[in-house]
């Protein structure tokens, strides 16, 4: 049995990784409120993948890590409007079970993995040409 990293220390690890700007995969994330000791609300950003309709667009997301994170996945919602399978067309909520990379959630998975997975999803051959709402709209 290996040590099970508790929620808060796990979130601190993710925060540090985010702060160091090591998320080089066109994604970034950070705490919404730097005073939030519980570290529940996060902002995510995805740089639209190249050679797709998303190219050069910046997508904002909000991520909510509940008390059971990372045993349970966080809730993820697009703020920027996007047309993408697995993303609810009215409120932007992401159905993580539709994202191959994180579908079978495991406590080793991170917010970064979700964002990278979403970006891959956007770049997928069958998604990358989907018509998109005008840039700048939000859910």
């Amino acid at each position: 049995m290996t040590a099970k990293v508790p929620r808060n220390f796990r979130l601190l690890e993710e925060l540090e990784k985010g702060e160091k700007g090591l998320g080089a995969d066109g994604c970034s994330y950070g705490l919404t409120d730097s005073d939030d000791v519980m570290m529940s609300k996060w902002n995510g950003t995805i740089l639209g993948p190249p050679h797709s309709v998303h190219e050069n667009r910046i997508y904002s997301l909000e991520i909510y890590c509940g008390d059971n994170y990372p045993d349970s996945p966080p809730q993820v919602r697009f703020i920027s409007k996007i047309n993408l399978p697995g993303v609810n067309g009215t409120d932007g909520k992401v159905d993580l079970s539709k994202l191959p990379r994180v579908a079978n959630w495991n406590r080793d998975y991170t917010m970064e993995r979700i964002l990278v997975g979403l970006r891959e999803h956007m770049a997928h051959p069958s998604h990358r040409k989907l018509p998109q709402p005008a840039e700048g709209q939000t859910f």
Binding site: Y29, G30, T32, D33, S34, D35, N43, S60, I79, S80
Partner: peptide
């Protein structure tokens, strides 16, 4: 104190 995107579009 935070990794909040400074210009994160919000």
């Amino acid at each position: 104190g935070s990794g909040t995107p400074q210009n994160g579009g919000r």
